[in-house]
């Protein structure tokens, strides 16, 4: 017995949810009224109309059930939405039924705290796989667990909306909002040439000479100077603007009115800054009270920073010394520019 129920549970029995549409409620109320009228008058023709309304409701219930049978929805693809902006995800609905098409199908991922606009399919024929797009909008950054995939239908009469909740797991990492930056938001160091100090790198201008390390280009070996030394010597070139920029984000504030919001805005500002600087080809690191991301450049670094910011706790406490972890992280790179972002 237990095995049988387990089998049924695993194979095709998924929880269902039934809700009335507005029209469905009206039809239900009218039916109840009709029933009362028929019972109290004994008018057989009222019984007949009552029978019709009940039949519509019953058929509606049976068909909405069978209309979802044998349908499957693909897993939610990897998406990295930004808070407040709709993200589109492609979903594939497949009919495993041997016959009978399914009509009026909607599919969307069940994510708490997200607004979803489902992918819609007018009909799915037997054996057919159709791709549609659903849109998810998240108000806030963070991790959102995926609770399942929902298939729903209002077929055949739009009296009920029946939903089937297919199991699915995963999580959606929502990045903080990224705003266009105003000039005063940018750290002066990223523009001011006067603060420019030469930094060794892979640029073109000669910078100096140092010992060869793994990963250096052998073409830059200085053979003459290397002669007579244990370690070979290579030329070093200056890399334009290659000094790292550290974004020092204090994700903590004194408890009180709007404290969390202030931290949120600071996080958004840090994200915007990071994206802006990385787009400009800079090397960017991030130090916060709750950890740091070591400097890097390119879009992969952008992903790392945004991922980190997505789950960064917003602390409502401000004891002295809370920024010590930031100082510690900054201390590892004394030559870097530091852009402080405070709530």
């Amino acid at each position: 017995m237990g095995r049988l129920t387990d089998f049924v549970w695993r194979s095709d029995f998924f929880p269902r949810k039934l809700s009335f549409t507005r029209e469905g409620k009206i039809v239900f109320v009218v039916s109840v009224g009709l029933g009362i009228a028929a019972v109290n008058t004994g008018n057989n023709l009222l019984y007949m109309v009552f029978g019709l309304s009940l039949a519509l409701i019953v058929i509606s219930g049976v068909l909405s059930e069978s209309n979802l049978r044998g349908l499957r929805c693909s897993a939610l693809p990897e998406i990295r939405p930004v808070a407040g902006r709709p993200a589109t995800a492609a979903l594939t609905v497949t009919s495993r039924r041997p016959r009978f098409p399914a009509f009026s199908i909607e599919a969307w991922p069940m994510v708490e705290g997200a607004q979803s606009d489902p992918a819609r399919f007018l009909d799915v024929r037997p054996g057919q796989s159709l791709e549609g797009a659903c849109r998810l909008t998240f108000a806030r950054r963070g991790v959102y667990p995926l609770r399942g995939m929902v298939l729903s239908t209002s077929f055949p009469f739009s009296f009920f909306i029946k939903s089937l909740i297919l199991p699915a797991t995963g999580r959606i990492l929502v990045h903080p909002r990224v705003h266009p930056l105003r000039a005063e938001d940018l750290p002066p160091a990223s523009e001011g040439e006067e603060e420019h100090r030469p930094v060794a790198g892979r640029g073109s201008e000669f910078f100096g000479v140092r010992e060869f390390r793994d990963g250096d280009n052998p073409r830059h070996l200085l053979h003459r100077r290397s002669a007579g030394r244990v370690e070979p010597v290579v030329r070093e070139f200056e890399q334009a603007g290659s000094r790292a920029v550290w974004i020092a984000l204090v994700n903590a504030t004194t408890p009180g009115e709007g404290g969390a919001e202030r931290v949120e805005r600071a996080i958004e500002k840090s994200a915007s800054l990071a994206v802006h600087l990385l787009d400009a080809g800079r090397t960017v690191g991030l130090a916060t009270v709750s950890g740091a991301v070591s400097p890097g450049s390119g879009s992969a670094q952008g992903g790392r920073i945004l991922d980190f910011l997505a789950t960064l706790p917003s602390l409502e406490m401000n004891p002295p010394g809370i920024d010590e972890p930031i100082q510690a992280a900054l201390a590892t790179d004394s030559r870097a520019f530091v852009a402080w972002v405070r709530p």
Binding site: V289, S290, G291, A292, V293, S294, P325, A329, T332
Partner: peptide, 8 residues
């Protein structure tokens, strides 16, 4: 580097 201190 890259360490998240203060882990629960």
């Amino acid at each position: 580097m890259n360490s998240v201190q203060f882990k629960p």
